[in-house]
Design a protein around this nucleic acid. Structure first.
Lengths: 221, 221
DNA sequence: GCAATTGGATAGTAGCACTATCTTTTATCG
DNA sequence: CGATAAAAGATAGTGCTACTATCCAATTGC
């Protein structure tokens, strides 16, 4: 398959394919001449993966590149691979500023919570920081979260994760397993977030719609 | 309070404040002279809200502007306001292409599912489309989701949403309620996503790398 | 009185994800 | 065999977002 056919079957324009090639997101095709190369089914599959990661997962091309590199690195275990994917999915810019006192405290809370749950999680996991940051925000807004609530959320997360992982372990080839894991992470997350918003809207309609507004406070604009 | 003090207490640089003022994200201060204006506590609160929406929620400034406009629009009910927030949180660019057959089918599935659950959700809710898109992706990858699984996810989402909404209804002023709702939507979502990843990593460690005792994962990003 | 600050305006920047154009070489069809 | 289309590779340009930088005249605070 040459580039124009790859473009046609993948729906990605030729210039964009060349761009992906330049950026190393797509491995070069097998050269058949100085200016001719052959692309395979694998290129097509990779393109599909890139599409899922960017469109559904909302990853930047740089993050996609990190995930792809990890997939291609045979020295990594599948578990390490997932860590890389989580890393890529994490907050785009890691601000390396000095954390404030409440952030430090929240991180300690998170660590304590994870230990309490017996969850084995890498100390570098970006989700640790995300969680701490969210907790700080809640606290600053005066809506401090009690451990019972956090535990309820964690129970939910635990059950979902266990179920998903059980599908992946007995999987085919390494690359298929990895892709399935990454895609599952991203896509099931999208499913959960979408359902949560749908549920929220439903409850909001039940609770808030029949009534009129409560305050009528004038905003200083 | 003048602009430099607003900058100092909010941590946002003066040029950026001016930019927000220009873009209408921040209402102008009360002018005290031709080139002097007074900023209030309300400006500080709004800046905090902007920060949460962009940093935690990952919203673009344009989306933040939409949410802010909705907050300031007294003719909207709190429920409608939430709809706007959901809209802003939805996928950035709504591609208005002709949906393929499987996408149309998935949308119908989603509608049927919502009816079956008795969820009252606006037909325009972006989460409908997100969910359908995710379902299509899963289907294309040969990991079709059965209704039992979807129901389990939905149960989870339902419980979480009900719990969050119950906190908001008995709230103070309209603006406080709205901010609490928006922030809750965004921040609790971050909490859930973070916990889900943490749980996933834990299960991944248990299943895929039983020998590592620390979560020992070295990633150079 | 005068340096520092302010509001307002305009222009510039960095990063991202492409998109366009050009050159040289090769394939392919009549 | 030759005309035409397509290929690889390189360089430059585009549109968008979220800021920064610089200027200027008016004003404030010591």
């Amino acid at each position: 398959m040459r580039i124009s056919e790859l473009s046609r079957t993948s729906g990605v324009s030729v210039p964009t394919l060349k761009y992906y090639l330049r950026e190393g997101l797509l491995p070069p095709g097998a050269p058949t001449a100085v200016n001719q190369a052959e692309y395979s089914e694998g290129h097509l599959r990779r393109l599909r993966l890139i599409g899922i990661l960017t469109d559904i997962g909302g990853l930047s091309l740089r993050a996609v590149g990190d995930v792809l590199d990890a997939i291609d690195d045979d020295s990594l275990t599948t578990h390490q691979m997932l860590g890389v994917a989580h890393h890529a999915l994490g907050p785009r810019d890691t601000d390396d500023e000095e954390p404030t006192a409440d952030v430090t405290a929240a991180r300690a809370d998170v660590d304590r919570f994870l230990r309490g749950r017996g969850w084995r999680v890498s100390p570098q996991a970006p989700a640790r920081r995300s969680l701490a940051q969210a907790l700080v925000t809640l606290r600053r807004m005066g809506r401090d979260i009690d451990d019972a609530v956090l535990d309820r959320y964690a129970d939910v997360a635990d059950r979902l994760a266990a179920q998903e992982l059980s599908r992946v372990t007995g999987s085919r080839s390494r690359i298929a397993a990895i892709e399935s894991l990454v895609v599952g992470t991203v896509v099931f997350e999208a499913v959960l977030v979408a359902l949560r918003r749908l549920a929220q809207e439903h409850h909001s309609a039940r609770r808030l719609s029949p009534r009129t507004r409560d305050g009528g406070l004038v905003v200083d604009k």
